[in-house]
């Protein structure tokens, strides 16, 4: 479980996060949603320590992250996996080397054991027979899946997915969503997904946090989201006619 308490972050004169408090549960898909520029990516980067907030605390299973020494932070980071929007695979390494990288850095496994673990992770995300290819030779969807394989290589306790569906076709996006849900249940991880893909929210969202104007505006599950009468949330989620029709079909609710 990850707890965020009173997190505030400012860039110059711009107050991006305004005292956000939220809890991200273990074993469920937690989603952070919000408009572009609402501060959801900044929130995620604060949680993983890429940004340092002016105020607030982040607790990983009760362990306060910002109060830790650099060495303690490095140790806790080995329990974190992250899939970046751009996949962030290392261009100079093959698919297999990318997945083996965290093992090479932080374990004493021999090369054969690392290869075997990489094969298992790649098979888990349905990447077979591409071990010797370089990231540039893969499609966007494959790169995302390799990114997920690298993120789970050390069986992390916490996994972050930053816009996992961006730039993907709808079918591949559904596959990735399914994979995120399966891996969360399989490994019992605390999963945080930053997204503004409404299909993804409806498919996999179990604990949804809506960030608006740098604040936690709303929190709930999928059903609560469908039933919500919050104007800001509804304007964001049901912006398209298609989504409004979908809500009508599911809940029978009229505008």
């Amino acid at each position: 479980m990850i707890e965020v308490v009173g997190l505030s972050k400012r860039f110059g004169d711009l107050q991006v996060l305004k005292g956000i408090t939220a809890t991200f549960e273990k074993g469920v898909v937690n989603q952070i949603i919000g408009r572009s520029g609402s501060g959801k990516s900044v929130l995620a980067k604060c949680i993983v320590g890429l940004h340092h907030p002016e105020e607030g605390r982040v607790l990983y299973d009760g362990r306060p992250f910002f109060e830790m020494s650099i060495e303690e932070k490095r140790t806790i980071r080995q329990e974190i996996g992250m899939l970046f929007q751009s996949s962030a695979l290392f261009d100079s390494m093959t698919v297999e080397e990318n997945v083996m990288f965290p093992m090479r850095m932080f374990t004493t496994m021999d090369i054969e054991a690392m290869r075997e673990r990489a094969r298992i992770c790649l098979e888990r995300v349905d990447i077979i027979g591409k071990e010797r290819l370089f990231p540039a030779e893969l499609s966007g969807g494959m790169q995302k899946r390799v990114g997920i394989a690298r993120a789970i290589a050390l069986t992390p306790k916490y996994i972050f997915y930053d816009e996992p569906n961006s730039g993907l076709d709808p079918q591949t996006a559904i596959l990735i969503d399914g994979l995120i849900k399966e891996l969360t249940e399989e490994y019992g991880t605390t999963t945080i997904v930053i997204t503004h893909d409404m299909n993804s929210v409806m498919e996999t969202g179990q604990n949804i946090i809506f960030i608006h104007d740098g604040q936690k505006w709303w929190q709930g599950d999928r059903q609560e989201l469908l039933d919500s009468s919050d104007q800001e949330l509804n304007d964001f989620i049901f912006a398209s006619e298609l989504m409004r029709q979908a809500r009508r079909a599911i809940t029978g609710r009229l505008e």
Binding site: V48, G49, L50, K73, R74, T75, I76, R77, Q78, I80, M82, F84, A88, L89, F90, D91, F101, P102, M105, F106, F160
Partner: peptide, 9 residues
């Protein structure tokens, strides 16, 4: 990619 390295520790 540098963020990825940092997050890995």
């Amino acid at each position: 990619q540098i963020d990825a390295l940092d997050i890995m520790g």
